[in-house]
Design a protein around this nucleic acid. Structure first.
Lengths: 209, 209, 209, 209
DNA sequence: AATGAATGAGTATTCATTCAT
DNA sequence: TATGAATGAATACTCATTCAT
């Protein structure tokens, strides 16, 4: 009865609505099967608007990636205090990460399962974020061990840690009844001993010199 | 005058040729962009043959997944001796895994990057293999700690470990000059302390009862 | 802070600006590929204005045709003195024509290459002008030969002459270093003998009667 | 009752059927308004075949141009005997040309009205043919005047002549009751005196040297 | 066993055109 | 007078899939 008259919505808002719809559809269907038509429908607009605002399906996808990647990074950045000891930092980061994934499962699926699979710009975008994350972790480990630049082992460990996060995030989403907090704690149990040992070994080696 | 007679190749061999071509193309392009035409071309046959042998693009994809998943599992199974202590078993498994990835990068990309992204049968196939792997690891950890059934923490650790493997495999492929052996060793350094501690804690808790 | 106030430009001027932009774009891209958007942009206004002023893309195109056709006819009319002998008249007309084409290449391209190709009103507009031109030439030839109404041969010659003009105009535009004056002169050399002979033959035939 | 079972037609024949349909539709509608769908329908096949055989609408268009241009050139070439005196040659060429236009009005419209208008490959194709024609005529004139290379005036005359042909062809199609033969004859009357004079002047100038 | 010929069903993209302000 | 927002309708192009031979 109140057919929601198509109001003239300002650009900035429409953009967000379109991104919301896109993330939802890309997450549900995957990049290729997702149709621009469906996205437009869910956003409550017509197809041409999508092209007017984003230019192409791929650019739309990249815009999704970018928004969600930024949100994720912000969430973590806000929780981590660089002054804290490494263990605290890691703990905060993990909690932030898993709680983001919990709260924005669609975003996570798009970022992790979809974006990296497609070649081209979208994969590059996510790879870039991943690279920065790995670097950050490696740097933190090295600094805590009193080194300037991360060694090979630190970088490898960082990569492994990120992989653990991704795997558990995925698992968490598929396994109801698993809270972000718990998942973070368990991952700490798994990962911290190895990281600690690594830092000690590094310190020891350094001391000898 | 010599129109390259279409050789009558026996079914079993044709199938393998087609799977080889498929893995190559799926790895290079991704599931959706890969065209049945190109696959047929590379396999040196005509499109209808593909349908005669595999029924549909999706079934062809599943067949790829299955073959490569089996190869991967065989490689690992052959290297791991269930009588060995856990650390030995893990070490062997990791070496097997990374060396498989090194030698069959196409297969790995299809399994890891492509299969899981697509919904449907192919994803299920890979998820199943993954599930079995995680179970196996969790079971090994629990047994070594003297328990019948894996606890939550063991399962979580197994998931994390598998994630680490995947992440490092990917990284290894993108980073020349990194050998399978080295990668396996570094992953051991990262993961073993946590796993050991977990087993000990489990044993301790069990003793108290 | 200074949002470039949209000046209230009087209608007559806006119309000319829009026609200028249209001719430019139609000439550069052709009728169909030309986008109303681009025209509006170049005219420094927004799309709806175009529709407010001209109603539709086709009407806009027709308006272009009309303006340029009139300009061309005016230019020629002003140069030609009907009291002059035919040769003088032709010479003046040709000079006028080629110099118009030289000075308004865009207009010429729109008139000749674009307008006639599209069916509908625009083609009719140009065909009409062309018809009048042919008639004028044929009439001139006949009058000079002392006849009331142009004969078939005169009409044919007029058509041929117009075709020569068009062809050379095109060629002149594609061939730098060729002046309007020179082109006109050479065309006179080519066309005049035939026309003269035609007039003489006509006169002779008439005398016999 | 006999719904013309969709026979499997060999490639070469289908190609011609498609070109026939294309010429018809391109002539009737113009390049842009012509839809690949309609072309396919008229050819009695489905859209994808068009793309399978020709790759794109533009390539299809170019293929039309090429076929018709070749047919036109062949027709003329067969009629003209290079041993004949210039006047004979011209006369034969004109008769050939106008009779081609009469018999293949669609082809002519595509070649003349459509192809040159669109930029890109198709225009280039036609321009090329036109250029060769002009060169041929200019060469003939010069040779007959005892010169090696055509002078500026000869080239200009050739361009003018070609323009006359085009204009009259167009007119002939729009004016029923006008035969190719008659049109050719009238064009001779118009053009020959000028050409003859040109050749004589050239010969005279050459003698002086 | 093998394939050249053929298509149904879709998809991204564009563009002239119109509202609401 | 002037425009940012919005769309209906069309169109080129692709691809998995199937006949007829």
């Amino acid at each position: 009865m109140t057919p929601v008259k198509p109001k003239r919505v300002p650009r900035a808002i429409r953009e967000q609505q379109m991104l919301d719809a896109s993330v939802e559809v890309f997450a549900r269907r995957g990049y290729h099967p997702a149709g621009v038509e469906e996205i437009a429908e869910i956003a409550g607009i017509s197809k041409p608007m999508v092209y007017l605002y984003f230019g192409s399906k791929e650019e739309l996808f990249v815009a999704c990636i970018r928004r969600e990647a930024n949100r994720l990074m912000e969430m973590i950045t806000q929780l981590v205090d660089p002054q804290d000891p490494p263990k605290e930092q890691l703990w905060s980061a993990l909690r932030g990460f898993f709680s983001f994934v919990s709260d924005h499962s669609g975003a996570w699926i798009v970022l992790y399962r979809q974006a990296r699979t497609q070649g081209g710009p979208s994969a590059r975008e996510v790879d870039e974020m991943r690279r920065r994350t790995v670097e950050l972790i490696a740097a933190m480990l090295s600094q805590a061990a009193g080194m300037r630049k991360p060694g090979e082992q630190a970088v490898t460990a960082a990569h492994a840690l990120v992989g653990s996060c991704e795997s558990l995030a995925d698992w968490m989403l598929d396994t109801p009844g698993t809270s972000a907090e718990t998942t973070a704690k368990r991952l700490m149990h798994f990962a911290w001993p190895g990281l600690e040992e690594l830092m000690e070994a590094t310190r020891a080696k350094r001391a000898k010199r």
